[in-house]
Amino acid sequence: MKGMTVIVKTISSWVKVLIILFGIYIILFGHLTPGGGFAGGVILASSYVMLMLAFGREFVQKDLPLSLDSKLDCLGAVAFAMIAVLGYVFGKSFFDNFLSQFGRHLRLISSGTIPLSNIAIGLKVGASLFLVIFILSTFRRDSSDDKQE
């Protein structure tokens, strides 16, 4: 599959940037406005899904190799767990918001570990959702290949 028409390709390569930016915004401001790591992560993933639909798998594979993607997935999860452990190390207990007094209310840098957690979750969700869609599409291709043979 070599992707869709030129129009679609061109537009989606532009829109991609906007979507990614929007996703990052949702993630970063998750502690101030509606949204957060999960929603932002899904938006990030959807930008790549769009690219995949428009340009085909091989293109995306060059941009974001599968191995890197799965590493990002693990990294996000580990990072989130590590925030919890850091709470144990530096604060009073596991998942303690040990940075809660850092920064001022209603600013980007505020509310301690919450934005950090949002970033970790955003990374994790984005990577894993894209991964699963990618794998699903690969799998379908394989099985249809089997049929042709």
Partner: peptide
């Protein structure tokens, strides 16, 4: 918690452990 978004304060601080669980479900 210092988070203006109450939802964020709940899911990432008060009940962050649940969120860890949900992230793990996804993982």
């Amino acid at each position: 918690t210092g988070a203006a978004n109450i939802i964020a304060s709940i899911i990432l601080d008060f009940r962050a452990y649940d969120t860890l669980g949900e992230a793990t479900v996804l993982f």
